[in-house]
Design a protein around this nucleic acid. Sequence first.
RNA 1: UGCCCGAUGGUGUAAUGGUAGCACAAACGACUCUGACUCGUUUUGUCUAGGUUCGAGUCCUAGUCGGGCAGCCA
Length: 596
Amino acid sequence: MSADSNPSNAAAPVPTDFIRDIVAQDVAAARFPKIVTRFPPEPNGYLHLGHAKSICLNFGIARENNGRCNLRFDDTNPAKEEVEYVESIQTDVRWLIDGWADHCLGFKAPGAAPAAGTVNGLPDFHAAAAPAGTAGAEPFYASDYFPQLYEYALTLIRKGHAYVCDLSPAETEEYRGSPDKPGRNSPFRDRSVAENLDLFTRMRAGEFPDGKRTLRAKIDMTSPNIWLRDPLLYRIRHIAHHHTGDAWCIYPLYDYAHCLSDYLEGVTHSICTVEFEVHRPLYDWILEHLDLPRPRPHQYEFAKLNLSYMIFSKRRLIQLVQENFVQGWDDPRLPTIAGARRRGIPARALRNFAYHVGVTKFDGLTDIAAFEHTLREELNGISHRRLAVLRPIKIVLTNIAEGEVLTCDATNNPQDENPTTRPLALTREVFIESEDFAEVPPPKYFRLKPGGEVRLKYACIIKCDEVVKDAAGQVTELRCTADLTTRAGGPNVDRKVKGTIHWVSATQSLDAEVRLYDRLFTVAEPGAEEDFKKFINPHSLEVVTAKVESSLATATPAERYQFERTGYFTVDSKDSAPGKLVFNRTISLKDTWAKK
RNA sequence: UGCCCGAUGGUGUAAUGGUAGCACAAACGACUCUGACUCGUUUUGUCUAGGUUCGAGUCCUAGUCGGGCAGCCA
């Protein structure tokens, strides 16, 4: 990896995009004491690569400006949210930013609630971030702001900007009109402030059943922007909340809670995806109609990530998991962050990828090849090389005695400045990859063929003397002679042959389960298909029992390995155990030969 | 259909009125004890039509195409 393509390198140029340009202008104009962004997932599912883009953007801006990025759970809909997701999201975020932007992670002091105070003579609430290193610091929760949000709602009512509406859900929809047809005013729109106050207080007190009344902003039922047609601010839901329990039976809606949560936390740049563009006038309207003394946050939108051969829709991801097309949310074939981690994708590769795709408002489709390139680029630099034979075929080196062990030096990583080595045992019987032998070789075949020569990597050149077959005509073993003069230190070490292949000793090697993952879908845009499940790649997972060199006995999930000439692998964090090795293929090596 | 947003090689992006550049992909070549890596060469682009300007990918108008919005979801 070159230094200047690596955003985690201190000397690297910072990325530029239209949002960072805006932030830079705000910094230049000293509009804010500190740049504060936020990553605000709803805890209703696992994070995926699309979220990773957003995390890298928000935390990236924070770290580039000596600012902060709050992790906030946008948990205003208790019907959909669970603690399992709260926990997985924290794990994924911390993993993704570790060693890169963890010093910018905005958490609050344990149990902290927004503090009431006075700013510029006006009453104010502020949800401060805890100083770095605060013991027990925890993420922000929108649900921690329910009391303040309730106060703000009372204020809107008093100012005549909000009213309690008794329309049923169906009636509300009907009154709203449609994009090309203006809506009509609710018959409850002109209730007195006193009545609204009374009704809203009683909503909060639990006097009314679900759906009976709502609190609405009084804006304009004829607005061409549907989100300005008296949007709902609060609904009644008699349901326990994962974070606030039974404390509330009215819950704020996204548009109301989000802008105010941003404000409470002192967020300066609220960055979301383009589908919220039409919500921005409402975001601004709410903040403008409360007399908030501190600088108001502003919303900016960018296009979400689309990757070919992948699916990001939460609804569809759930189907894949629940209908057992994959094995759980961390299945390595899934575009979830948990899946990527288990597959062996380094966090830094994800960050680099986010850097390379850029940030725009254009709704494009990024080629999966760009993602794979970033992976290989990162993995190439950090992976230790190992020899592993995925589909073994036995070779007998007839001029090596049984029991004889010749030790070879193998380079751990040629990309290192001062590469280290490890010993490898060459014995009479070895395994090579079955696809590295062809009885009838295609043109330009560099590998082993009857009567042909090939080099066993780190060992010596061998010549195929005899092909042994069983009664069915299947090749069972190859009998070869080893030219020991071509070993390291030997007189003919520099003798060239066209092909060099990987191998392992038959007696000094280990069996390992190896999971060969491939793309989950067979079409570039599975999300565009009505029945996307018809396009699931039946070969997205192939499991083989491989022969791997014995040094892999102590392999850990923290390590990345390149099985030479094959691909990048890591130990499976769940299923691997001492004595029962399981490897996941992160990504194959580029193979320009196979394409021809 | 009303409103909002967008459009630069095959793909993702840069150029902030002044030489259309980068990365990926593709092709060819060099190197190679990984058909990897690395290095070199090459192919391909400003949606259309008008306008403003000495000069337009950039500004204006219209069109075309694409995306988004009508949950008491976020």
